[in-house]
Amino acid sequence: MEEHVIFTDKLTKTFGPFTAVNQISFAVEAGEIFGFLGANGAGKTTALRMLSGLLKPTSGIAMVAGVDVMRHPEQVKRRIGYMSQKFSLYEDLTIRENIRFYGGIYGLSVQTIREKTKKLVDKLELGAHVDELVLRLPLGWRQKLALSVAMLHEPRIVFLDEPTSGVDPLTRRQFWDLIYEAAADGVTLMVTTHYMEEAEYCNRVSMMVDGKIEALDTPGQLKKTYHATSMDEVFRKLARG
C-alpha cells in the first residue's frame, strides 16, 4: 500500500457542544501542493492544529509523516515545518540568531546549524545582512527566510498558514517560486490562503464549510463541477450554499 504523507479518517474536534471539525477524511501525496480553503470560522485552523500535533483530536484518525497525531503529537512536531504570516521569525534577533534558535529547537547539531546557515544565506543571497535584525528586513525577505527556516530540519511536510497575506504581488510570486521548488524536491506543502488566485497554483484544493470538507479536487475540476469561471466563484458558491 502506498503511504500517504497526510492521511485522515473521520477526524473530528469538538469544543463542548460545538463541532469545529466534523469527520474529515482526506489524503495528501508526497510533493503535492495542497490548498486548504474555507471561510473564517469553517474549521481550517482547528484542523491544521490537529495535523501539526498542537491539538488533540476528539475522535478519528490522522497520520502525518507516518505518525499517529493522537498518540505521538511530539513526534509529529519534529517531522513537520510550520510557517504563518503572523508568527514566524523573532524580529529582535538577527538572521543568524533566528537560524541558530530554530536549529536548536529542531535539535540540529552546532555543526549542522553552521552549514545550514551558510547554505540558506547563500541561496537567498542574504550574505551581507546575516547579522542584521530581522526587524530591518523588507517583508518579502522575511517571508522567504521564514519559509527556509521552517524547512531547516528537512521536514517532509510544511504547513503554511496564510503565508503571503499582505505581501506585495511581486514578492508573493517569488514566494510561490520557493513553494514550487520545495514541491519539486518532494516536500509536501499544505497551504491556507484567502487569495483565490493562489488556490489555482495548488495541485489540489479542499474547501471546508462548517467543519466539513465540502469539496476536494484539482482547481480545474472544481471549476467544472461548480460551473464556475474562477476559484473565487467556486468559493462563493460553496461557502454560501
Binding site: G38, N40, S165, G166, H194, M196, D232, F235, R240
Partner: peptide, 10 residues
Amino acid sequence: GTGVDPVSRK
C-alpha cells in the same frame, strides 16, 4: 478586507 474570507469581503 485583511484576514476576512472572500465572501465576507465581497
